[in-house]
Design a protein around this nucleic acid. Structure first.
Lengths: 250, 250
DNA sequence: TAAGTTGTTCTCAGATTGAGTTGTTCTCAA
DNA sequence: TTGAGAACAACTCAATCTGAGAACAACTTA
């Protein structure tokens, strides 16, 4: 059956039985390490494994709304705090055998959040927790969530290059050093502080000065840093390219 | 209901009724213009409008397989020719009201094809046709397909920057000038021939020489051009950046 | 007060880019 | 057969961007 037939009118019971869920790869930075929001599964299949927060798309909500709702439910976040979280669609996963019980197509989303309080085991009985991404092996993950997380991480790394979304990991006001640490954490590379500083200030619309400075210098000394907020650019021109992986060598 | 509940076991009739389709934004270049594969709708809703080729995901196929099947059905393509077409997932569209009759989530895909013969009105009665993308207004398009096409075009333009996928619009062997014309057509900008030549040959793995040259010079004169085939790079390092839109100049 | 740390700015060599030029090989038409 | 125009490929050169390091002042803790 093709779309033409489908659209020409049909019995609603006529189409193949597929369930649609949304899953969320929610990232944040805690103590200098990239963390991921996960839920411990209690029941089979994959009991005891970690899974992404997610669930059915409701009849009255679109995909993005479903993802935002799932995120709100698991983090206990709402209002302004939730609105500051960046959320975008990552991709859909629909392998026929990805759920042992029935055909499920999951629309995965990717979220960038500033450091948030620990999720409270709230309305639901599942315990959600922020886990460092380095602490994960794909054997500990339910379904194809290991693959989804890998895709999300790669997307996140790439998005930092050509969008100003790194600021979404930070509070509304931040220093250039804090911004650099976001890049270093997500990319897993140290960056040259001076060059990074020059670049960030030279890309139009990336950050704008608040005029203020931090109250104190760094924990181990140094001058007070100037404060910035996110600018109005949606795209970085020119981009901040990550160091090429050395594939040319050997 | 969240995923936890869902996965804990449930009645298959329990989940919200959603249909999943795949749609394909198939692009090719004909006579120096970017063309798009579209199908003329015969029946309401949107009778007489253009729609993307697409249809239900079948129980035994994953999303990419469904998209490739739809593409094959509408182009009459198969075997090696079909395998050379680049196909990737574009994104999912699930607004609650995007189909007036029921909830449909469509997983859109993006395809890059070399110039193909005109589709034959084949197994199905719908007439598929390659249309220049410039000849479209979104009023002539069914559902949210105008939006999907816009997203596909933007993705295509951006993919040419950092991947070697421009070669997928060409025959297995091509000249640097043909490759440049792909970029010019998709980006809608003339490019500096000399600089483009230098850049393409300097990016590792983008193209490799076949050693051969074209049989004849250009239609209006000029020497025979050297022939190249696609190299083994999956990503271009450094990228071929498109000229910045002049937003600074306003 | 001394020693160490850090934010910010500067310098400078090397690479990359944009724009134009040159030389040569080819087609077409007179 | 030849002249005119076209276009591939290689080149030059100035402007810009990048990577790496250094300088220096403003802060911290001991």
């Amino acid at each position: 059956m093709n779309e033409q037939d489908f659209l020409a009118g049909y019995d609603p019971r006529d189409y193949p039985a597929v369930a649609v869920t949304v899953d969320v790869v929610a990232l944040t930075i805690r103590e200098g390490a990239l963390h991921l929001l996960l839920i411990r599964r209690g029941a089979p299949p994959y009991a005891g494994h970690w899974a992404l927060p997610g669930g059915f798309v409701q009849p009255d909500e679109d995909l993005a709304a479903g993802a935002r709702r799932e995120l709100a439910e698991e983090t206990g976040l709402g209002g302004e705090r939730l609105r500051r979280v960046h959320l975008e669609q990552l991709g859909s996963y629909g392998a026929t055998d990805r759920d042992p019980r029935m055909r499920v197509v999951s629309v995965a989303h990717l979220a960038f959040a500033p450091d948030l309080p620990d999720p409270v085991a709230d309305t639901d009985a599942d315990d959600a927790i922020w886990l460092p991404v380095t602490a994960l092996t794909s054997r500990q993950l339910a379904f194809d969530h290991g693959r989804i997380i890998d895709d999300g991480l790669e997307r996140a790394r790439s998005k930092l290059e050509y969008t100003p979304l790194a600021t979404r990991f930070l509070a509304p006001e931040f220093t250039v050093t804090e911004l650099r640490e976001v890049y270093e954490t997500v990319w897993g590379h140290p960056l040259h502080a001076g060059n990074f500083h020059r670049k960030v200030l030279s890309v139009p619309g990336f950050v704008e000065s608040t005029g203020a400075s931090t109250e104190r210098g760094g924990a181990r000394g140094g001058p007070r840093a100037k404060l910035y907020r996110a600018g109005d650019a949606r795209l970085l021109h020119p981009a901040l390219l990550r160091p090429a992986r050395e594939e040319t060598v050997r």
